Simulated assay, not measured.
Amino acid sequence: MAFFTYIVASSRNGTLYTGSTDSIVSRTIKHKEKTFRGFTAKYGCARLVWYERHPTRHAAFIRERKIKKWNRVWKLELIERTNPGWRDLFDDLF
């Protein structure tokens, strides 16, 4: 089983949300369908712009917590290193 740390965004350089999950596909669908009430639904964070695979749930959670403490510029740089066009990476999961 794989675990993931991910960032969803409202748009290019828009609002960002960082999370972790054991099912990146179903979690992204929940963000897109606004099934999660709260921050991501309120601010329209549904575009999967970055993700990283981890061997354990704990490793994904630790990485999530570290990224959440980063300043915005660092998060933008992380996204743009692997996804300079801010494409929605959801389709790449299949």
Rank of each mutant, 00 (worst) to 15 (best):
T40M: 08
I79W: 00
T18I: 10
W70E: 15
F4P: 02
A41Y: 00
A2R: 11
N83G: 12
W70C: 12
G19I: 03
K42Q: 13
W50N: 03
Y51H: 10
A60V: 06
A9V: 10
F36A: 07
P84W: 09
D92W: 06
A46K: 15
I67N: 06
S11L: 08
T5R: 06
F39Q: 03
K30L: 04
K30C: 10
G14V: 08
H54M: 08
G85R: 05
R63E: 09
K42V: 10
T21S: 10
K30I: 02
F61M: 10
R65N: 10
T15H: 03
L76A: 03
H54Q: 04
V25G: 02
W74L: 11
V73R: 00
T56I: 05
E77A: 03
I79G: 00
R81Q: 15
N71Q: 02
I67C: 01
V25C: 12
W86A: 09
V25A: 13
T5W: 04
M1G: 12
S20I: 03
L16M: 02
A9Y: 00
R37Q: 11
L78N: 06
W70P: 10
A9W: 00
K75W: 03
F94A: 15
R53F: 05
N13L: 13
K75C: 07
K30R: 15
S11T: 08
W86M: 12
K66C: 01
S23Y: 07
S20L: 09
E77M: 04
R72T: 13
L16I: 08
V73C: 04
R65M: 01
I24P: 01
L48K: 11
D88M: 06
W70A: 15
A41W: 01
T35M: 08
F3L: 01
K68T: 12
W86H: 08
L93S: 05
L89W: 05
G44I: 11
R81V: 09
V8W: 02
A60D: 03
P55G: 06
S11E: 15
T82Y: 12
L89G: 12
T28Q: 10
S23C: 08
G19C: 09
C45Y: 00
G44V: 13
W74D: 06
P55T: 06
H54Y: 07
F94W: 05
F4I: 03
D91E: 12
K69Q: 13
N83M: 14
G19P: 02
A2L: 06
L76T: 10
F90Q: 02
P84Y: 14
R53H: 11
K66E: 14
F36Q: 02
L93D: 02
E80D: 13
K42R: 14
W50F: 11
V73H: 04
V8D: 03
H58F: 03
R65W: 05
K69L: 11
T28F: 01
D88H: 09
G19E: 15
E80F: 08
K34T: 00
H58D: 01
V49D: 07
S26T: 15
R57Y: 14
G14Q: 07
S23L: 05
A2N: 15
E33N: 08
P84F: 06
A46D: 13
S26R: 14
V8M: 03
G38H: 01
D22A: 07
R72P: 00
V25R: 11
L48Q: 04
T5C: 11
T18V: 15
